[in-house]
Amino acid sequence: MINEKIICAGFGGQGVMLMGQLLAYAANEHNLNTLWYPSYGPETRGGTANCSVTISEMKVNSPVISQADTVFVMNLPSLAKFEGKVKPSGRILINSSLVDKKTERTDINAYYIPANEIALKLGNPRVANMVMIGAYLGLTKLFEKETIIKLLKKSFGEEKAHLIPINDAALQAGIDYIEENYPQ
């Protein structure tokens, strides 16, 4: 039974909110129940940002996630703030390009993905968030990459359609990175 609780955390401008939204949109595409909730406040760019997503076959109750199945850590401050939120044997996906520390937790599964380096190699560091989503898809097989691409197309519209190939490549790079470094 699917009942995924996810926290995405980083700084504003890293596309942290979009990561959560894409997962929530994908859940809705599959007729799963879902709820996305952002931290909100005066900070936009540069400040800390996080959002929670619940994806479930059951009705979603508490929007507050106390025990997350998955935490995305996109920058260093988010590691200290959110590693305690991962439930035992849950997973933490760390953007090792910007986080040079390892998690202190030994009861969870940690995945270190150099998302910014991979994104930069592809030509745009801004798709680091898509590398992370790709890694998540590779680990969980929750959604197909094509679902995410379809949603991105819808969200980007004609104006930004030229950005689809690099986002596609970033998602694939994330999937490939997991396959090569964390074979299941």
């Binding site: 879902t34 979603v60 929007p63």
Partner: peptide, 10 residues
Amino acid sequence: DGLIGQMMEP
């Protein structure tokens, strides 16, 4: 409350 205003749901 603010959460209902800010959250997304189907």
